[in-house]
Amino acid sequence: MIEAFRSLFAPPRHFILPIAALWIGLALAEKRSESHGVSREQLNNLTFNSLIAYVLGGRLFFTLSNLSAFSQSPFSVFSPNPDLFDPTGGLAAALLVGLIYNQRQKLPLWGTLDASTPIFAVLAIGVHLAHFAAGTAFGSPTTMPWSIDLWNANRHPVQIYELFASLVIFGWLWIKKPNPHRGIYFLTFTALTSAARLFLEAFRGDSVLLFGGIRLAQIVAWAILAVTLFALDGLRRESPANAERYEV
């Protein structure tokens, strides 16, 4: 079954998984967006504007950081090849466009983030599935009985661990009663996701290592977790009169 899945979604077909996840996440988020102070139409526009910015921004950043290569073949800018892409640049462009849209529509920032949380949660599931299909973000070698044969070794099925964690996080957030304070929903998702990454990164076989074998992703996840817990504490401490609240 694992092999059938990996064959069906072998690269470059694995890209369909995060795209499908984005679509499902958006459909789910739309159901509850009004309760976060964001209309369905606004959430749709925000998502599609950010998506377009991600695609164009990723290509633009890649082009700018490899200008000499493109100056000799400028038409490569229009190539459909997805490898001509800078994901960090794409993410930065998507965030920027999202923020601009949010401000122009005068949407509440925490409300928008809460409304978008199901999109992020389902997208995470799609990304882990894509990693599993492509064999990327792979685990370290192990002798555990549930190991999978990947890249010529028996490895931790770390993509499955991460997929399972994402499913639990999404499921828990989806059935949880919404907190009346704005921002709690999004911050809870961020805290759980960074905690999961902090824990599961230990089983990855492709970590970027710092001094003493410390894994960079764990440091980043720990820092995000610390900031998120601090922010959660701050939001919960706000007196009911000052806090942004939903009409529930």
Partner: peptide, 18 residues
């Protein structure tokens, strides 16, 4: 989290490929 980061550090220094 901090303890886990230290405990789970990759002492081999090359987690990527071996």
């Amino acid at each position: 989290g901090l303890v886990w980061i230290v405990v789970s550090a990759d002492r081999t220094g090359s987690s990527t490929a071996g």
